[in-house]
Design a protein around this nucleic acid. Structure first.
Lengths: 334, 334
DNA sequence: TTGAAAGCGCTAACAC
DNA sequence: GTGTTAGCGCTTTCAA
């Protein structure tokens, strides 16, 4: 491990000034004699020189990093979001600092602080809960901010939202059209706005169709799959079983299916199940899961594109993505 | 968006020197009078000051970032690896720059260059193919390097490997013990070392048990799930069907199961299936997938811990993780 | 087309 | 306990 060469040494080796080397490196059309260029190229090769962006960033006050904070990458919804962000970021020459907040406010705050200190130009965050002052601090520092899923509490923040309510509506309407009348909604704790919106879409649709029976079961477990199993257990304890179930997300739906099938309930013959997300594996399930698609990769790309717009001085926008119902084999007409 | 305050302004506001502020910030036991501390704290609050780590990093030549390059985060094996890395990195105060190489050598090279320029202290990479000079360049720059899955072609590189061969052996032996005699191996292109090792474990075990029948089907598709479907199709075209199948990975196994079941083959009654990886969703499948567990989160944690050891001057080590067979319901005695 | 020099925000050696 | 100052590697203004 030899000491890294600096621009100074390259300049000395090539017998030119560091200004010239710098101009060569930034490659911005500044005129340099061919001969000089060649000398510099030779020196760079000889010294195995790599520019130190820290110096550049410090000088120009332009880091080329953006932060991405998500609850947990173990939820298969997020990898696609991240990939979407990365696709655009790469084009623009940015890299991604990835952080898993694990739904821990302290940890999230800590990550944000570090990211700010590392001079990120922008932050895309799927935040936990309403963090007005937090968001405010970030924007005040001149850092571009885009909020995923949750409505931003202040101005100047880009937002890529999803119409959860319509998603649930679509799902329930489909079930009703398929002849279902007893439709339950099984959910994780209703401490997230998105989950509440799904609940609203669910009840709005039942209302519209003048259906009076419904059952909402909530459970406290935060691991979505385990939660699904618990929810199914609670469901089975009911006197009157519904003929169809809307799960708050796909992972929970997997758990519900698993438990029901192990207890002799056939899907979709005895019970129809609709999930929410359309994770890549939902189509691989047996039966393949009917679900409300929330376009994850597109969410990432939109968020990134919005972020770069903000960085270029444009107004922060708000996009609400509309759901699409993906009908597979976990639901059936009765 | 007000201009960011610097350490100078804090010093002026607090009526102390910037050295004192710097000492206060680095918080390394250097003695400072209580009163002075308070003045500084007040100034920091008043100016809404956040330290600029770029300055510190440049001065101390210590960035606190590490790079992580993986083929694609869409493969559910990697998120857990990343989480494992992050867990340790956070403890040590490091952040992660995440890059998806998409199995594209040019892109991978490009990412590595940028990461080096951004002065990462270390790199954990699941590389594509044998990149001797690439690895060499990284190590030469004094950057800690840990290779995942693939054996490193040069010295000084940490390695977290997995005993794929034993994994396959375990799987096949289990099938044999369950009475299976016709066992096929279905695989993606054999252009990865890991896949070849699985093949070797497969044939070694059949050899040991003096079983002469076997069938290896390879297909070119790179999307693992789609590949699984194609593989199952090819399998069905055979005159004599095996009673059991080892899939090269879990995602392929899902595809195989899907296709077989849609074509009236019951799993495990008509055909046993074993996967390879134990992705978190494998237990959620129907039937839950018997598979060889490759401990992903532990891989990440080990890689990170090895990297930090290297950064502290220790010798690069090589760890080979041993497989564990997770028996679920996709296999059965015959 | 090139060079000299100031300075980005910070740390640390040295002086008091 | 605190201040002065050089300089990390780079860009950019100004002058030539």
């Amino acid at each position: 491990m030899n000491k890294k060469a600096t621009i100074n040494e390259v300049a000395r080796q090539a017998n030119v000034s560091i200004a010239t080397v710098s101009r060569y490196l930034s490659n911005n059309g500044y005129p340099i004699k061919e001969e000089t260029k060649e000398k510099i190229e030779l020196a760079i090769k000889a010294l195995d020189y790599t520019p130190n962006y820290l110096g550049r960033m410090l000088k120009t006050n332009k880091s080329m990093d953006i932060g991405v904070i998500i609850p947990t990458i173990l939820n298969p919804y997020y990898p696609a979001v991240i990939l979407g962000i990365e696709n655009l970021a790469r084009e623009k020459g940015y890299n991604i600092l990835l952080c898993n907040s694990k739904r821990d406010k302290t940890l999230q705050k800590q990550y944000i602080d570090t990211l700010i200190q590392k001079q990120i130009k922008g932050l895309i965050i799927s935040s936990i809960g309403d963090e007005e002052t937090l968001f405010h601090d970030i924007v005040k520092k001149g850092i571009g901010l885009v909020s995923l899923e949750e409505e931003a509490p202040i101005d100047g923040v880009g937002q890529v939202l999803f119409n959860y309510q319509n998603g649930a509506y679509l799902a329930i309407r489909h079930l009703i059209e398929q002849g279902h009348r007893k439709i339950a909604f099984l959910t994780s704790p209703l401490n997230k706005k998105s989950r509440n919106e799904i609940l609203q879409g669910y009840s709005r649709c039942l209302n519209d169709y003048k259906l009076d029976y419904y059952k909402v079961i909530e459970n406290k477990q935060e691991n979505e799959y385990e939660n699904g199993i618990m929810l199914a257990k609670l469901l089975m304890a009911e006197k009157h079983l519904p003929t169809a179930v809307l799960a708050v997300n796909d992972m929970a739906a997997y758990g519900i299916m698993q438990y029901l099938m192990q207890n002799g309930i056939r899907i979709p013959e005895d019970m129809s199940i609709i999930g929410f997300d359309d994770l890549i594996i939902s189509k691989m399930m047996n039966p393949p899961l009917t679900t409300v698609r929330q376009p994850s990769e597109m969410t990432g790309e939109l968020a990134a594109s919005m972020l770069f717009d903000i960085l270029e001085g444009q107004q922060a926008r708000k996009i609400v993505l509309e759901p699409e119902l993906i009908i597979r084999a976990s639901t059936k007409k009765i």
